[in-house]
Nucleic acid binder design. Structure first.
Length: 211
DNA sequence: CTCTAGATCCTCT
DNA sequence: GAGGATCTAGAGA
């Protein structure tokens, strides 16, 4: 049924199956400023302790705590000193799988999203994981929210499903471990899918050889 | 479109 | 201390 919330069972499975199944569905977040909703067009799967690219690879820490809990909750993390990214926790309680939400199309609350990202074109409002969080108003305070609560501030509802023939997969963006694992999923031809960028280690300062 | 570089601070080793 | 599941501006094609 279109518009119904995705049940918790939806998230309680292998990430590499849940991730592509999320494409086309709609995440929405309500704040005092208003409600913003995005149709998901790009996601990535992270498999927990066996996955070198996962934040859970080295076990449980204060930061990744939520990933080890029950499915259907949001794992938000802070990165690069200024950005937030959001995941949906998958798999049974006690495991640490998650799907990174990488991009979407704003289908509701565009005015609110534009106010949050005034320099962005409409196409770029949620084109990238940190942009998506900014457009939805997601930050540290949203870490741990349950998206399976009807009437709650953050929900995932059934949208117009992505055409299975248009779903593509390939290597994950910007990760340093397990580069070959093709667990990035997107809707081919959708203009809101982010451009692929390989991982580039950044150097802190200019290396001065002599003075 | 491509490429380059800077911003900025939290987290884990 | 090192580096990161990124974004933006600016320059050039």
């Amino acid at each position: 049924m279109d518009g119904a919330l995705l049940p918790r069972d939806f998230f309680d499975g292998p990430v590499e199956e849940v991730a592509p199944a999320l494409l086309g569905h709609v995440i929405s977040h309500r704040t005092p400023e208003g409600e913003v909703a995005a149709r998901l067009t790009e996601v990535e799967a992270y498999a927990g302790p066996l996955d070198p690219a996962s934040h859970a690879y080295r076990g449980r820490t204060p930061r990744n705590e939520v990933m080890f809990g029950p499915p259907g909750h949001v794992y938000v993390y802070f990165t690069y000193g200024m950005h937030f990214c959001m995941n949906l926790v998958c798999g049974p309680d006690g495991t640490s799988m998650a799907v990174l939400l990488r991009a979407g199309e704003i289908i509701e609350g565009e005015d609110v999203a534009r106010a949050r990202r005034p320099r962005s074109t409409v196409r770029d409002l949620a084109r990238g994981p940190a942009r998506l969080c900014q457009a939805l108003g997601v930050a540290r305070e949203q870490n741990g929210l349950d998206v399976c609560v009807p009437g709650g501030p953050m929900t995932v509802r059934r949208g117009e499903p992505a055409d299975p023939a248009l779903i593509r997969n390939g290597p994950r963006t910007g990760v340093n471990g397990a580069k070959e694992v093709p667990w990035r999923f997107w809707i081919e031809g959708d203009r809101t899918v982010s451009p692929y960028r390989p991982h580039v280690p950044r150097q802190r300062k200019k290396i001065t050889a002599e003075g």
